[in-house]
Design a binder for these strands. Structure first.
Lengths: 157, 157
DNA sequence: TTTAAAGAGTACTAAAAAAGTACTATATAA
DNA sequence: TTATATAGTACTTTTTTAGTACTCTTTAAA
């Protein structure tokens, strides 16, 4: 299944939660509770985000936690995706990789994968955290069941 | 890294190779040679493709092999991707998954992930095998080095 | 009719990646 | 000074992906 990995997905959820309460520091426990993600995992993700991003401040000690320094509409989801996952390259035949393959002179698919990749990347770039959250929030719990079973049933019928 | 898995990538390469020679059956060994992918892996992929797609014919015995029954411009790459990988759902909060999560009433990101997912899916749908191959082929060898190292260097600088 | 060559099907193994856990160090506010 | 929170690191487990091996079936040509 062509999808973002869970940690990236979690990271986006965590940042969404922070973006709702920019007036104070939110600690990992509170994020864990709101997101429905285990504390240990939230801690791991938040450490990673802080070390890699420029839009979050962490504070230690009691009444510490995390706070965004940019507004939700200033944070593109591509930032979070590439921070967690590395570059968006849907195949190896993509990107500013100008060095030639040792086993081939050139790749006959390279140029066109680049086009497709660019469109996908632009799509992700054009959405901010604010865009993702624009509908009415009913619950912040992370939805973690898969669509795969349903798809497989469809295939058979 | 947000990317298609290798088998899907290989499958597209194999089908591209078949699309260049629609007049006769091409066997797995020939595909393996042209694609630079091991024979065993090509065999595995081709078996999968035949069992799941409606645009390829297989013939056993000597002078057997595989042949496309549709032209390259009639095969969308989304067909191959979803055949190999299942549905394109960049997060779990996506798709015609109308059943509610057991742990939450609703997902506050669901609707907007659906939009993003749809755009990505449409992009992939709009490209055919012919589109992927439209530039001059220099070599059919599969390019399998990664961009990740180069990206990591960029990050540090 | 026999034989060699090809794909089909299945099960297994190995490798890689992802996810989760645990522990120590450091900083901060009360 | 103490309790609380993040930072850093290493490790383990689980899951997914990739690759291999073997037997069965079909087909065309000798």
């Amino acid at each position: 299944m062509f999808k973002l990995n869970k940690m990236t997905d979690y990271a986006i959820v965590c940042i969404c939660i922070l973006s709702k309460k920019m007036d104070r520091f939110i600690n990992a426990q509170e994020i864990s509770h709101e997101a429905g993600i285990s504390l240990a995992t939230v801690q791991k993700i938040m450490k990673l985000i802080v070390s890699k991003s420029d839009f979050i401040t962490a504070l230690r000690g009691s009444s510490g936690g995390y706070k965004l320094t940019k507004k939700a509409n200033e944070i593109s989801i591509i930032n979070i995706i590439e921070m967690m996952d590395g570059p968006v390259c849907i195949t190896d035949c993509v990107d500013g990789n100008h060095e030639r393959c040792s086993s081939s002179e050139n790749c006959f698919l390279e140029g066109n994968w680049n086009n497709i990749n660019m469109i996908i990347r632009n799509t992700l770039q054009s959405y901010s955290i604010a865009d993702l959250m624009c509908s009415d929030p009913i619950s912040y719990l992370y939805k973690n069941h898969s669509n795969e079973d349903e798809f497989n049933k469809m295939e058979l019928s």
